[in-house]
Design a protein around this nucleic acid. Structure first.
Lengths: 251, 251
DNA sequence: TGTCGTGATCTGTGATCACAGTTAGGTTGG
DNA sequence: CCAACCTAACTGTGATCACAGATCACGACA
């Protein structure tokens, strides 16, 4: 059933006398196009969830999703399994898989975790992000501001820019597992947060997110870790308070 | 493909005139025995990983695992899918699924995340754990100490007691998503940490874990959040340094 | 003796079918 | 007109089969 660590990888290709062999140049590509169908479906559903295109309580049928995406039921099953493991989807025995409906307590817990982990990420990013990464983040900040200021507000664009802004920040920390952890939290929060942002222009008009994003970028440029953390935490906190106030949560 | 939020759940059972029906008392149980085969396999593999019974680099075959557990390949596929989503297993196209071999950098990142999140959990637990929960944790601490002091040391018992101790602490915080997040980190770290603890008695002899565990329990009883966090972080830090010193990590 | 080629075997992936349980809609009886 | 039942459709789960790619070992050639 199991075997100990096999031969080390450096013995894979025999040492050739040629200074440059074309084989070695080829095997760097090709790793990306080996994307399995299940992973593609997984990415598709993941995007829908984070973007708030799937609302809490929405029901999905494996067969319907499979038909809509032009694949069989198997890849969908694999994708849904992974999302259920992440808590992004739920499946009760005998019932259809559905997007979980968070209770107020669960949403509050989710927000506490986001404040802790994403706050830490902002702190670290302010310390070690490269100038290029900071400017990239600033670009998304500008895009978000523009989407919010447009009339009528570009809600879909704001959702995308907001996501890009945050994850560019987290990626700048250089901790892939941290990014994965945060993405898991977004998968759970996305359906509520972004469905709301997509539905209501008021939150964008008030501009609290715009303000905090600007403060964040300024803190990054000033290498002020504390200010960066506080700006990001304020962004999360204010959005969460807005959601909690709508009373759209269960219980 | 999707439908809006359906009828609220309070309409599920028609309002009966009877003050107490035995049916309502029964449907609280039964959720546990409705365990699918895939979940059982998932739990089985998860236990093996956290306990360090599967070493980094170990290869698993879907068919072999299925045969060993007496089920078909399908439940194993589902379980492996979930564990791959958690990063606890890896599957390269065309190759067998295997336990990931962490690089030193990845292990350091994992440790940083554990210090942040589990440290936070210890802090909160010191604040809100009930006396009963603290005594439960103290019981596991005693079991760990006894396993470490035995001659020869009860390595398997120490691994179990250590796991029970930590997760009793985290459960006391009352944040299920926090526990899930931590469990995901343990799934990745377990194969290295506990394989080592299982193999080498020296770490138990030196007793650094015993000391930190005792400090942790004392801090919990004193409601000293800072001391609890520091004791837990020292426990994690010292174990991680020990692992890093062995040089068993890749690259 | 060393090295390359080649075929059998094993790998995960995907599709299709069968089944038990639930859901929803239509119909019947009051 | 309303409620209860009953049937037909739909749900996820599990099993079985087919397939392309990778691995490994044996054998032939230099």
């Amino acid at each position: 059933m199991n075997a100990r660590v096999q031969s080390p990888p450096e013995t894979q290709r025999p040492a050739a006398a040629a200074p440059r062999d074309p084989i070695a140049a080829l095997d760097s590509v090709g790793s990306l196009l080996h994307e399995t169908l299940g992973e593609r479906v997984n990415g598709e559903l993941r995007t829908l969830l984070i973007a708030g295109r799937l609302a809490p309580g929405d029901k999905l049928s494996l067969r319907k999703v499979a038909e809509a995406l032009g694949v069989s039921m198997m890849p969908v099953r694999q994708a849904v399994s992974r999302l259920v493991a992440d808590g992004a989807l739920e499946v009760l025995p005998g019932k259809a898989v559905h997007v979980p409906v968070l209770s107020l307590a669960q949403f509050r817990e989710l927000t506490r975790l986001r404040l802790l982990i994403e706050g830490y990420a902002a702190e670290e990013a302010a310390r070690i992000a490269t100038p290029a990464e900071i400017e990239r983040i600033a670009g998304y900040e500008a895009a978000f501001r523009a989407a919010a200021a447009a009339s009528p507000p570009d809600l879909g664009g704001a959702v995308s820019a907001n996501r890009d802004l945050h994850f560019a920040l987290y990626a700048a920390v250089g901790m892939p597992m941290l990014v994965e952890t945060i993405e898991r939290l977004w998968l759970k929060a996305g359906p509520i947060l972004n469905l709301d942002m997509r539905a209501e222009a008021r939150r964008l008009d008030r501009g609290s997110a715009v303000v905090q994003h600007a403060l964040l970028v300024a803190a990054l440029r000033a290498r002020d870790a504390t200010a960066a953390r506080e700006a990001l935490q304020s962004d999360i906190h204010q959005a969460a308070e807005h959601i909690a106030a709508t009373g759209r949560l269960a219980q």
